[in-house]
Structures are given as structure tokens and as C-alpha cells.
Simulated assay, not measured.
Amino acid sequence: MTTTITVIGGPTALLELGGLRILTDPTFDPPGDHPVGPLTLTKTAGPALSSADVGRVDLVLLSHDQHPDNLDNLGREAMTAASLTLSTPAAAANTGVTPLRPWGHHDVGPVRVTAVPALHGPPGSEPIVGQVTGFVLTCAGSPTIYVSGDNASLEYVELIAGRFPAIDVALLFGGAARVPMLDERLTLNAAEMVIATRVLKARHVVPLHIEGWSHFTENRADVHTAFSEAGLSHLLVSPDPGRPVTLMSA
């Protein structure tokens, strides 16, 4: 069977799997500044589709709620309109969404959503950057999908690969994000995305979170170069935002 993926912009994509319409990290604001405590994050490009264009959403997979490059103002409206949102316990306390702890699962129709570990920066950074989660989606006869969220830990990728040895599609959040208060990468860089692909033995890789914000230090071209140099260009699925692409399971 198949899944259809439409990249919308930043970390946001629409997955059509098992009859469900699933949205990752909703960001629908136009370009502009977003204050975050002492920082200001600047959005440089709007989404390819509006939430109205997307239409019905059965499930939102929210990696975290505390940063506007993963949940902005119009994204919150889209999340509120969705039937169900799964996220971290911290996000649940803040927003009332349904919490999932690492390795916990929630069944939505034929799709099982398992929360998997993620770390939004170097070890020890969680008190600063907050909780974040990834997800693995499984559905009988359909591709197994990993949604990394803002994970920067290859060690966690290895743990996930140990539990899910057959990842058909990996949605890897990259961009090598940096902010002044933490002089460390907060998300994977392109070279680490290559390593994650090999660890997961992914058949297809959809890069997300690589364009649209000024604190991303790498972009789509960097990802394509890294995969080309590694001889893995054939695994990349990088459609123009707004254009659906259909992928099959093994």
C-alpha cells in the first residue's frame, strides 16, 4: 500500500496514511518575527499551502509546542481545529493536547502512533530547550514512517532503529538550527541526516525543517549535496512544497 506526503514548509507536512490525514508540526504564519523569551526567531518564507488549502486534519503530530518554528500562531489554530493532537507531556500541560511518553503508543483508526525519544540539542540541553518527541507510524500493509521532530541525537536514532528495524520513510528534521544562547546544533545537519538514514536503513528520506527560518544554518541544497556525496541521492524524496508525492511500502 501507499502513503502520500505533501511538504508544506519548514517542519510541516501532510501525510495521508491508512485513510487518515496527518499533519506534522503546523506552521502556517506568513514571514515575520517571533519573539521567544530573549530571542527573536525570524520566519523568512510562508507555507506552500494554507490550513484552508489543507482541509480536514484527523491527527496532528506535534514534536513540541515551545518554539514558533514548529508551532506558530496560525499553526495553533490549525491544531485546535484538528480531531486529535499527540505531543509531549509538557505540551499537553501547556495546551491540553494528548500526551505520549517515549515508547508509549496511541491507536488512531488503523494507524498506531508510537512516541520515540528525541533531544533538541546536545546532551544536557533539555532544561533550556524543553521536551521534544519523535513518532513512528505503523499501519498494516502501509509504509512504516519515522517523523524525527527536532532531534539532534544520533544515539536516539540508533535506539529507534533497534525497535523499528524496517523504516520505509524517514521524515528527518534538519537545518542545523542554531541560536545565540546555545552555540550548538539544535537539529541534525546534512551529514548527520546521512548517518541517520544509514542507521535506520530508510528506503525513502523526506527532508523537513531545512528552509524558511533565519536560524537554520543549512538548507535543501546542503542536504542534496551531502546525500549525493554519500551516494544516497536515490533515497531522497524532496518535492517542491505543495506538490504531493506517493510512496509505497516494501
Results as ranks from 00 to 15, higher is better:
residue 52 A to Q: 06
residue 52 A to G: 08
residue 52 A to K: 05
residue 52 A to F: 12
residue 53 D to K: 05
residue 53 D to A: 10
residue 55 G to N: 12
residue 56 R to S: 12
residue 57 V to S: 00
residue 57 V to C: 04
residue 59 L to N: 07
residue 60 V to K: 03
residue 61 L to D: 00
residue 62 L to V: 10
residue 62 L to D: 14
residue 62 L to R: 09
residue 63 S to E: 11
residue 64 H to R: 08
residue 64 H to C: 14
residue 64 H to P: 01
residue 65 D to C: 12
residue 66 Q to A: 15
residue 66 Q to R: 15
residue 66 Q to F: 13
residue 66 Q to S: 14
residue 68 P to H: 09
residue 68 P to G: 09
residue 69 D to R: 14
residue 69 D to M: 12
residue 70 N to L: 14
residue 70 N to D: 15
residue 71 L to M: 01
residue 72 D to G: 10
residue 73 N to F: 04
residue 74 L to G: 01
residue 74 L to E: 12
residue 74 L to D: 13
residue 75 G to N: 11
residue 75 G to K: 11
residue 76 R to N: 02
residue 76 R to Y: 01
residue 78 A to C: 05
residue 78 A to F: 02
residue 78 A to H: 06
residue 80 T to V: 14
residue 80 T to E: 15
residue 81 A to Q: 11
residue 81 A to Y: 03
residue 82 A to R: 02
residue 83 S to T: 09
residue 83 S to G: 04
residue 84 L to C: 09
residue 84 L to V: 14
residue 85 T to M: 04
residue 86 L to F: 09
residue 86 L to H: 09
residue 87 S to V: 11
residue 88 T to Q: 02
residue 89 P to I: 11
residue 89 P to V: 12
residue 90 A to T: 10
residue 90 A to C: 00
residue 91 A to G: 15
residue 92 A to L: 01
residue 92 A to H: 03
residue 93 A to V: 09
residue 93 A to R: 14
residue 94 N to Y: 06
residue 97 V to K: 04
residue 99 P to S: 10
residue 99 P to Q: 08
residue 100 L to F: 13
residue 102 P to N: 05
residue 102 P to K: 04
residue 102 P to E: 00
residue 103 W to G: 00
residue 104 G to E: 14
residue 104 G to P: 04
residue 105 H to D: 12
residue 105 H to Y: 08
residue 105 H to I: 03
residue 105 H to S: 15
residue 105 H to W: 08
residue 105 H to P: 03
residue 106 H to F: 06
residue 107 D to C: 06
residue 107 D to M: 07
residue 108 V to W: 01
residue 109 G to S: 02
residue 110 P to E: 08
residue 110 P to M: 09
residue 111 V to N: 07
residue 111 V to R: 03
residue 112 R to P: 07
residue 112 R to F: 05
residue 113 V to S: 11
residue 113 V to D: 04
residue 113 V to Y: 05
residue 114 T to D: 11
residue 115 A to G: 13
residue 115 A to L: 11
residue 115 A to H: 12
residue 115 A to R: 12
residue 116 V to A: 15
residue 116 V to P: 15
residue 116 V to K: 13
residue 118 A to I: 14
residue 120 H to Q: 07
residue 120 H to A: 06
residue 121 G to L: 09
residue 122 P to I: 09
residue 124 G to A: 02
residue 124 G to T: 08
residue 126 E to F: 11
residue 127 P to Y: 02
residue 127 P to W: 04
residue 128 I to K: 06
residue 130 G to W: 00
residue 131 Q to A: 12
residue 131 Q to I: 01
residue 132 V to K: 05
residue 133 T to Q: 03
residue 133 T to F: 01
residue 133 T to W: 04
residue 134 G to S: 12
residue 134 G to P: 08
residue 135 F to S: 11
residue 138 T to Q: 00
residue 138 T to F: 00
residue 139 C to K: 03
residue 139 C to M: 01
residue 141 G to Y: 05
residue 141 G to N: 07
residue 142 S to W: 07
residue 143 P to F: 08
residue 144 T to I: 14
residue 147 V to I: 14
residue 147 V to Q: 04
residue 148 S to D: 06
residue 148 S to P: 12
residue 149 G to H: 03
residue 149 G to D: 01
residue 149 G to V: 02
residue 149 G to W: 02
residue 150 D to A: 09
residue 150 D to Q: 03
residue 150 D to S: 05
residue 153 S to N: 08
residue 154 L to Q: 10
residue 154 L to A: 11
residue 155 E to R: 14
residue 156 Y to I: 02
residue 157 V to H: 07
residue 157 V to N: 10
residue 158 E to Y: 05
residue 158 E to G: 13
